[in-house]
Design a protein around this nucleic acid. Structure first.
Length: 592
RNA sequence: GGUCCGGUAGCUCAGUUGAAUAGAGCAACUGCCUUCUAAGCAGUAGGUCAUUGGUUUGAAUCCAAUCCGGAUCACCA
């Protein structure tokens, strides 16, 4: 599949033939050759110098000679510098690779393997609109799903909506108290923002009441418990659980507004779900798991009736799984939902895209599932990601420093529009085409900015930097794609001319070597569940193409052969770039 | 305090299954548009890879300790 992986067995074979040495392929190190040395791939010799008791130079020369002699189709020459054997791949090999793959729009995509994977992501609360942190989650979830699909898996994207609980009750109480029957439709406000406003109103009123109570001599703790509006919210939760009709009606109404708002944002950012679960349906799940756990002696009951699991032998703590009042806690619900997903889909793996503040929770969840011997327990995978911070520090809703997703998208769109107009290259675009282009640039820019960092790392979101359209950005890559397409509109790659009768030039070689590695990168992203390696790669591909582009003319190439070669190389670059960006959920334009 | 994660250029990040002189982008500075899209290219400058010790032919990468930052350790979700 990739040259580096093809070389290893040849080396192993050579070592066996020359010295009778049996080495595992994984013991061999084959890298691309550093640009300052001659060669394409490099075998590191140190690892077996000792066993063979020869100098690295001698070894390198002997191995190099044998490799070139026995594989003339692959290697044309070699050189040895210190402990490194640099191998030069034949131009005809590269030409063959190029010929075979340049037109492949699905480059790197594997055949379906018949296995299923669930990706749960997004999972919002229904009391406020989406913010920047949710965007990282949504982009990650979407991208990892695409990467898994390209890896041959069937993917089911799911979402668990946290539609019940004290948080939504707070919004509901505040609406009853302050809204005078206002609705999103009446105010022209997006539903999720509308409901979020009442959540803020609740907190303001709550704070006011707490202040009043403490002024009258209560301790802060008492006041927080005794504030009437908090008591009302808690009563509302009790009423909700009792199924009190007017509470249920209000709950449905307000959640409905939120969903209308979410739908707009989801559509805009491209999130979708094969199956949506609602916590109001699943929060009672897990009861029979508790029962089974007790029967299997995985759980134990304390005197007060609560049920626990002891994880101290695994270095963790004791964890409650059922309250003394018989209601199940979060982790028990999660086990119940995991069991339900397993029954519905029988996935090989079940991925949860959730922030790293829940690392402990998922560790416990998986461990519990394993101890209970639940099917699919080993397939539980927490795709953990770090918090998004601002240059000024963490986002805090109380301090109003939360970056709202809709606002941010609007701002990015405006910036894309402004910068595109400044460029003045969109003559002949229709209104719809322009809007599509601004969408591609703004949304792509945001996605790239959030996906280019390794998921588990915390990251800083600098608004000014995110809006930048130069350097390590989606725009740079999109621009490169449009540039290539502009060439390919003039003349299509193809024809029957055999490319590469002339020697490959360094910039041509550099590009083709990089593009050949794309499947290896995809594999890495797949194994690591990590889109950032694709983002980095896409940028490198675009950068390498631009260097090649500046150095060599495609349309005015020195010869017909060169022209054909470069057309194919350009098309391959465009296909790889488009493919990589698609896996990040980013579209690339034909013109910009 | 226990556990987990992170610390690489002024800033944001790659590189972490050990391998040649540690790389990008932004910011700063210098060049390049009568030639396929300059949203580009080339170059200059910028480093105690948190610190100390160890393993190794070879360490940003592995091990140990320490320092700094974050998360978590609820009958919350």
């Amino acid at each position: 599949m990739s040259i580096a992986n093809d070389i290893k067995p040849l080396v192993a074979k050579t070592l066996k033939e020359l010295y009778g040495l049996d080495l595992n392929e994984s013991d061999l190190t084959v890298n691309t050759t550093k640009p300052e040395f001659e060669g394409d791939y490099t075998l590191v010799l140190f690892s077996f110098v000792k066993q063979l008791k020869k100098s690295p130079e001698q070894l390198g020369n002997e191995i190099g000679e044998a490799l070139v002699k026995n594989n003339p189709f692959l290697f044309t020459s070699f050189n040895v510098i210190k402990g490194f054997l640099n191998l030069v791949i034949t131009d005809s090999y590269w030409a063959g690779f190029l010929q075979a793959s340049y037109a492949d729009k699905n480059i790197g995509v594997k055949k379906p393997n018949g296995q299923k994977i669930i990706v749960e992501y997004s999972s919002p609360n229904t009391n406020k609109p989406l913010h920047l942190g949710h965007l990282r989650n949504n982009f990650l979830g979407w991208s990892i799903a695409e990467i898994l699909k390209a890896g041959g898996y069937e993917v089911v994207k799911t979402c668990i909506v946290n539609d019940r609980g004290i948080h939504i009750c707070k919004s509901m109480i505040a609406w009853q108290l302050f809204a005078n029957g206002e609705t999103p439709a009446g105010t022209g406000k997006k539903g999720d923002h509308f409901v979020g406003d009442y959540y803020v109103k609740f907190n303001n009123e709550y704070k006011k009441q707490v202040d009043e109570l403490t002024a009258r001599g209560m301790t802060k703790e008492e006041a927080e418990k005794e504030a009437p509006i908090m008591k009302a919210a808690q009563q509302m939760l009790v009423d909700w659980e009792a199924g009190k009709p007017d509470v249920i009606d209000l709950w449905k109404k307000m959640n409905g507004w939120v969903y209308e708002g979410f739908d707009i944002t989801y559509k805009r950012i491209g999130s979708d779900f094969g199956k949506t679960y609602y916590e109001s349906d699943t929060y009672l799940l897990g009861k029979d798991i508790v029962k089974q756990g007790l029967e299997k002696n995985v759980f134990f009951r304390k005197d007060d009736g609560s049920v626990w699991i002891d994880l101290t032998t695994d270095g963790l703590d004791e964890k409650v799984v059922m309250r003394k009042d018989g209601t199940s806690v979060y982790i028990t619900q999660d086990l119940g939902l995991a069991e339900q997903k397993q029954k519905e889909y029988h996935p090989k793996e079940s991925i949860y895209v959730v922030g790293d503040e829940q690392n402990y929770h998922f560790k416990v969840l998986k461990l519990m599932a394993q101890k209970l011997q639940m099917p699919g327990a080993d397939g539980i995978y927490h795709l953990s990601y770090g918090m998004v911070e601002l240059p000024t520090g963490k986002m805090k809703s109380r301090e109003g420093t939360v970056v709202d997703a809709d606002d941010l998208l609007d701002e990015m769109f405006k910036e894309a529009e402004k910068k595109t107009k400044e460029q003045g290259k969109t003559e002949g675009f229709s209104k719809e085409e322009l809007k599509e282009l601004y969408d591609m640039i703004s949304l792509g820019g945001l996605k790239f900015f959030l996906l280019r960092v390794e998921p588990k790392k915390r990251m800083v979101f600098n608004p000014e930097e995110s809006i930048d359209l130069h350097g390590f950005t989606a725009t740079f890559i999109q621009y490169t794609h449009a540039r290539i397409k502009s060439i390919l509109r003039k003349e299509k790659a193809g024809g029957n001319i055999q490319p590469a009768k002339e020697r490959l030039l360094p910039k041509e070689k550099e590009l083709i070597v990089l593009l050949e590695q794309y499947p290896v990168i995809l594999d890495q992203a797949l194994q690591e569940h990590n889109p950032s390696v694709i983002a980095t790669y896409a940028f490198n591909a675009a950068k390498t193409f631009n260097t090649f582009y500046t150095e060599h003319s495609v349309m005015n190439a020195e010869s017909d052969e060169k022209k054909q070669l470069r057309l194919q190389l350009s098309e391959l670059a465009a296909n790889v770039i488009a493919s990589a960006m698609t896996l990040l959920g980013i579209r690339v334009p034909e013109r910009m």
